[in-house]
């Protein structure tokens, strides 16, 4: 269960990191291009630490348990051959349904407002989540949390300021920021869904109680939206499934681009 929990956090970090990296060379101005690339690398750095830890946990399991843990044939073959996994195998060789990231994070960049809104929702969640995870009884998770929190604090500042600037900017920027905030709202509910891995982690003192996180998240989002003269979207049907491996078709395209090199030329280094 701790492996599932670790993996999900790693997947979140990898997928948002990949999405933000798509802006590299395409940013609206040089300074923000660099800012987003820095942020993307922060997420990828966190993904690495967590995948290393996940691989360690996976390798420690019994052979029978390992065999069908991932549906990916590439990984099953490695297990059959008695090989151990490393962080790259976990990132590059799993199939879509093995990924447990939030649906929010695989949503396309679309435009600057959507990119900002997606980061804003996630950074706010991340800030409260990793603040709590520092107290995890799992010392590795606690250490990753303590290190990541400084970066995440900056991410939250960055995305909050952009929400305010665009929301309280021109008529056009206000309209487009509100649209992005509205359109991505239905993916925010999933952040607080407590699945089995969450419940198990909370019970063992390793994880974060998402029920307690929600009011803090809501309060912060509301206050930034107020400052930005934006309206909190009305309650609506919330999408979920990412945490259980059921994704929007966006994830397939991300993985195709991200994994094809390792899938085509296994073990390739550069």
């Amino acid at each position: 269960m701790n492996l599932a929990y670790t993996l999900r956090l790693a997947d979140d970090a990898l997928i948002i990191g990949h999405r933000l990296s798509e802006w590299c060379g395409h940013g609206p101005i040089l300074e923000q291009d660099i800012a987003l690339t820095n942020t993307s690398l922060d997420h990828l750095g966190r993904a690495r630490s967590l995948y290393q830890y996940a691989a360690e946990q996976f390798n420690a399991m019994g052979t029978e348990e390992k065999k069908n843990y991932f549906s990916s044939v590439a990984i099953q073959n490695m297990v059959s051959a008695g090989e151990t996994l490393d962080e790259d195998d976990v990132a590059y060789l799993r199939d879509g349904w093995d990924f447990k990231n939030l649906l929010l994070l695989e949503q396309p960049n679309s435009d600057w407002a959507y990119t900002v809104a997606r980061s804003f929702y996630y950074d706010t969640f991340n800030f409260f989540f990793f603040s709590e995870l520092q107290n995890s009884s799992d010392t590795t998770l606690a250490a990753v949390a303590a290190k990541s929190l400084k970066e995440i604090t900056y991410h939250l500042r960055w995305s909050s300021e952009w929400v305010v600037r665009l929301g309280d900017g021109t008529e056009e920027s206000h309209k487009r920021m509100q649209q992005a905030i509205n359109d991505l709202w239905m993916y925010t509910g999933e952040m607080f869904v407590m699945n089995d891995a969450d419940k198990d982690a909370v019970q063992k003192g390793r994880g974060v109680n998402l029920d307690e996180l929600k009011p803090k998240w809501m309060e912060r989002v509301q206050s930034i939206l107020d400052e930005a003269r934006l309206t909190l979207p009305a309650a609506t049907w919330m999408q979920s499934g990412g945490k259980d491996g059921k994704h929007t078709d966006n994830l397939g395209y991300i993985l195709a681009e991200m994994q094809f090199m390792q899938r085509t030329y296994p073990g390739m280094k550069w």
Partner: peptide, 10 residues
Amino acid sequence: QMAIENARDV
């Protein structure tokens, strides 16, 4: 404010 943040990143 954003000049300082851009400077931090650049």
